[in-house]
Amino acid sequence: MPEPSVTLRKIREQFGESIIETHSRLGEDTVIIQPQVLVPVSTFLKGDPDLDYNFLMDLTAVDYLDLKKKPRFEVVYHFFSLAKKHRVRIKVPAEAKNPEVDSIVSLWAGADWYEREVWDMFGIKFRGHPNLKRILMYEEFQGHPLRKDYPIQKRQPLIGPGAGS
């Protein structure tokens, strides 16, 4: 077993009981955490001088409906430190019914549009987001198209054949 990275070691020290799972493969660290510690973990990752994760590289979600995983959704955060040149992936599970996690817009302003995209595509709400509305689809659109139970042939045109039905 190689030595765990400084990120994994420090997160385990700080949030040991709230961590669901960690793994490390090909130099990529992943931490799955309880939803209630998302904001404290994020604050720690950003503020700790040894970690210094100042860049939110990506924020997305996964729908595990077909893989029968419980809970159904996972919100995935990719952080990068420009100074330390290291990365970490944080995953937060979300329930199938009314999925909701805390917003991290107050920490990384760049999370604003990412969280809107995840809301638009997956229907996962972000508690405390300043302006949580659709970003890619139009307001009239019903449902969330990247959910695995969104009918693949369903069309919702604004004008032309099939509009308004």
Binding site: P145, K154, R155, P157, G160
Partner: peptide, 12 residues
């Protein structure tokens, strides 16, 4: 052929 795209502009 997906939820987002107009299937030919001659529908409009």
């Amino acid at each position: 052929d997906n939820y987002a795209t107009v299937q030919g502009i001659d529908t409009i």
